[in-house]
Amino acid sequence: MQGEELFPVRKLSDIFTYQINFIDSLVGINYTISTLRKYKRTYEILKRYMKRNYDVEDLRLDELDFKFIREYEAFLRTNYTMQNNTVASTVRRVRSVVRLAMNLGWLSHDPFIALKMKVDEVYRDYLTSEELSRMCSKTFKLKRLATVRDLFVFSCYTGLAYIDTVKLQLDDVFTGEDGEQWLQSHRSKNNNRVRIPLLPPALKLIKFYQDDPRTPVGKLFPPISNQKANAYLKEIAKAVHINKKLTYHIARHTFATTVTLTNGVPIETVGQMLGHKSIKSTQLYARVTDKKVKIDMDPLKARYEGQELGLEKEY
């Protein structure tokens, strides 16, 4: 009919609803509940922005332009207590949804094409060898603290995230071609496969909890919520005199930095065990410690120990 558009007008609500429903249908398969929550929150903030800056509940996709995106970034910085990297990740989610609309043929132009955002380098904390040793040797009388400490230590020696540790099953442990015990699983975050040779401390923890009546049949460890685990880590940090905000992310960084990289494991191997597809991701986790620098420089120091220098003092 004359005057009618050949195709239905698509709006921001259409593409966000489509993507959120898609992610929701794949939670536990390709996506985590955390990812779903992030997209939902991003959309809620976007709706507040449209209401405040445009006095509308929704916008047509073909109305999006660089001005909309630029002012959205400013809105996040001035109306929410977000750090720069949080702003960047929030805008990045909107960008991914808008590009999805382009791929679906709902939008013909890219309003983000001129956008450039810098991400600040973040210092990711980890336990030193001495701190990890204190964590391992501490005896806890409270079973709940002992269990959370053990799960944390297991992550330190395997690099697994908390969600991937608690879902482990007996079948995930196998004997490799080298005759040693290995762990194979898939990351909940991105479904990337990880294969890890089990270090003695990790293997001891697996064997210990197989006799624990709290461990479900077929599982490696007793179940405990992430919220409770993080709360108990505060008590544990105080008990072992570690002045750091302990999280299971720190355990993962400890594996990358203190357990592997510092002891000479190549970063490419570390990345494979962490389930990274890009070496750039591993570089965010792995820090070159002073100990590692000393180990690498000692042979060089020995080589130049007898170096003659033509020095002459003037008096």
Results as ranks from 00 to 15, higher is better:
residue 1 M to E: 11
residue 2 Q to E: 10
residue 2 Q to D: 10
residue 17 T to A: 03
residue 21 N to Y: 03
residue 23 I to Y: 08
residue 26 L to P: 05
residue 34 S to E: 09
residue 38 K to F: 01
residue 38 K to H: 05
residue 41 R to I: 04
residue 48 R to K: 13
residue 50 M to G: 04
residue 60 R to Y: 11
residue 62 D to F: 09
residue 66 F to G: 11
residue 69 I to V: 14
residue 70 R to P: 15
residue 74 A to Q: 15
residue 75 F to N: 10
residue 85 N to P: 01
residue 86 T to E: 08
residue 97 V to N: 02
residue 106 W to F: 10
residue 109 H to K: 08
residue 112 F to T: 07
residue 112 F to M: 08
residue 120 D to R: 10
residue 120 D to L: 09
residue 120 D to A: 13
residue 123 Y to D: 11
residue 135 M to H: 12
residue 136 C to T: 13
residue 140 F to C: 08
residue 142 L to D: 13
residue 143 K to V: 04
residue 145 L to I: 06
residue 152 F to T: 04
residue 156 C to T: 07
residue 161 A to N: 13
residue 166 V to Q: 00
residue 171 D to Y: 04
residue 173 V to K: 01
residue 187 R to G: 01
residue 191 N to I: 02
residue 210 Q to V: 09
residue 211 D to A: 13
residue 213 P to V: 02
residue 215 T to M: 03
residue 219 K to C: 08
residue 220 L to I: 07
residue 221 F to G: 01
residue 221 F to A: 05
residue 228 K to E: 02
residue 228 K to P: 01
residue 231 A to G: 14
residue 232 Y to N: 10
residue 238 K to M: 13
residue 239 A to E: 14
residue 244 K to T: 11
residue 251 A to W: 10
residue 273 M to K: 07
residue 277 K to S: 01
residue 285 Y to T: 04
residue 290 D to Q: 11
residue 291 K to H: 15
residue 293 V to Q: 12
residue 294 K to V: 15
residue 300 L to Q: 15
residue 304 Y to R: 08
residue 307 Q to K: 15
residue 309 L to G: 09
residue 311 L to N: 09
residue 312 E to N: 12
